[in-house]
């Protein structure tokens, strides 16, 4: 499709599932793109329509995700120019930290379910890290 050429992801990167609200999954994906620098602070976002086409979702759903991101302050609208990523780097850093904490707590929960104590988990992490650097 025309107009989608300068979009930075490829289609298969969206991995949307149908059992959770799609706008939440889109928000998660865009947040990840923001903290990993695929979108830099101040970058312009593609239009709702282009991104909806790429992710194969309803434009209203994409719009909803954008509005929620805007409400959280990660994205802002310039009336005639479109939507941009926030230039507030502190906010992006905070988001990154929050996402890291979420990932850790999820990991800890799975380890607990597997029956590992905190100490055992810690030991396993250290071993895994050692192996990776070796």
């Amino acid at each position: 499709m025309e107009g989608t050429k300068n979009i930075k992801h490829s289609e298969n990167e969206w991995h949307l599932t149908s059992d959770r609200p799609v706008f939440i999954q889109i928000m998660e994906k865009l947040k990840l793109d923001i903290v990993t620098g695929i979108y830099q602070p101040g970058d312009k976002l593609p239009s709702v329509r282009d991104l909806a086409g790429e992710a194969a979702v309803n434009p209203n759903t994409m719009q909803r995700a954008f509005s929620e991101l805007e409400r959280e302050g990660l994205v802002y609208t310039q009336r005639t120019n479109g939507r941009f990523i926030t230039e507030d780097i502190t906010m992006i850093d905070q988001l990154k930290e929050q996402m890291a904490l979420d990932a850790i707590s999820q990991f800890l929960k799975s380890m607990e379910q597997l029956g590992f104590s905190d100490e055992e988990t810690m030991k396993l992490i250290k071993e895994a890290l050692k192996e990776e650097t070796a």
């Binding site: 599932t17 149908s18 059992d19 959770r20 609200p21 799609v22 706008f23 939440i24 309803n58 759903t61 909803r64």
Partner: peptide, 13 residues
């Protein structure tokens, strides 16, 4: 559709 997913925790399918 997203309200349904939120409410029922499952896909439309």
């Amino acid at each position: 559709v997203d309200d349904i997913r939120m409410q029922h925790q499952k896909s439309i399918d």
